[in-house]
Design a protein around this nucleic acid. Structure first.
Lengths: 196, 196
DNA sequence: GCGTAAAACAAACGGTTGTTTGGTATAGGA
DNA sequence: TCCTATACCAAACAACCGTTTGTTTTACGC
């Protein structure tokens, strides 16, 4: 049984197609983005997209998967250099935010698009996101915390705050590194002023 | 100059229309919801909606405004009974979460729909949301905090974590009151175990 | 009860949606 | 150089979108 498949051609525009889709899905969401919007950015005709993907949902799934891969890579690279648990968590949050706010169109899709928006691929998307977030489960498990602190709640609070920053973040005014450090610090140390 | 307007009729279905729109906008977002989806829920024809609203965007704006009004009312009622700053903040978070997760279809719209999704009404929606969040500005201003704590970051972190809970919350498994209390506690007290 | 305005119906409108179908140019291995 | 699978084009498809227009029913103030 020999494979009849051939190598992909060098002039195919699939990469640019994915880039453009990532940018638009991230900016306008899934339902707010049109096939025609996407292909216009790469001078392609609408029908040509269906040579690469069988449906709009599968294009989204591909972008989403790439987004998870990229942000995972960034975070892992960031935490690899450190050993102190709190520094590792901080580095992970910085990488997460940088991918989410400044760089990565792909990463923005992962946060912006809800799996429920794409019923046909919802399970796949949820699985990808869960696997990424399990990175933070480990990071938080490694923290030396007071015994009564619920680590799950801590994770959900931190990730929620980070992800929501997509809503209010403005380039120039805010700095991802500063935000991430502040968030971690707010959790780590008491905010309440000492009793008099 | 006498008004030629007459009182609204008792059998008009505008309230149910708004209820249905709130439910669907909250579940599927603005672009994921169709005029026909909305009117189907109240046994109305698509065109009839345009007796009440000139455009889909204005229907969303009405639902959004009502959502802000309802959640504001709830939060204000919750904090009116308390005087301790931390208790007031906790009560506000509980009310916010209850409106967001269990009750209020209207409140869900406020959190789910991004003003950017509706360019024609974006400024109005942003204004409404900002005015609501100013409630939390005051609540956090009243907290006795260590001098080096940035109150804006604290607010953004708390509200972000609360709002994002819409993503992972599951009825029955989680409890809005418990979540809110945990979040506030995580900010208030140190999570780090004391140095040995 | 009558007149009037409120609140809807009935039926379409032009445009857009995701998608399909059949044909075509061309890069790249043989 | 020829051949084939790749990667697209060209043109349409039916379904659906938000919206408009003209008409009809009906609650309510007088």
């Amino acid at each position: 049984m020999e494979s009849t498949a051939r190598a992909p051609r060098a002039d195919n525009r699939l990469p640019q197609l994915l880039d453009c889709a990532a940018r638009l899905f991230g900016e306008r969401g899934f339902h707010g983005t049109t096939i025609r919007d996407i292909v216009r950015g790469v001078d392609m005709l609408p029908g040509s997209l269906y040579y690469h993907f069988a449906a709009k949902e599968q294009l989204l799934a591909a972008v989403y998967a790439e987004g998870v891969a990229r942000i995972t890579e960034r975070v892992q690279a960031a935490i690899a250099r450190r050993s102190d648990p709190w520094q590792r968590l901080t580095a992970a949050c910085i990488a997460h935010l940088e991918a989410l706010l400044d760089e990565g169109d792909y990463a923005q899709v992962v946060i912006r698009v809800r799996p429920g928006d794409v019923p046909e691929a919802a399970a796949q998307l949820t699985g990808l996101r869960d696997r990424y977030e399990s990175l933070f489960v480990e990071l938080i498990d490694a923290l030396p915390l007071r015994p009564n602190v619920d680590r799950r709640t801590l994770r959900l609070m931190l990730l929620g705050a980070l992800n929501w920053s997509q809503t209010w973040y403005r380039r120039g005014r805010d700095d991802p590194r500063v935000i991430a450090r502040h968030f971690v610090a707010l959790l780590r140390r008491p905010t309440e002023s000492p009793a008099e």
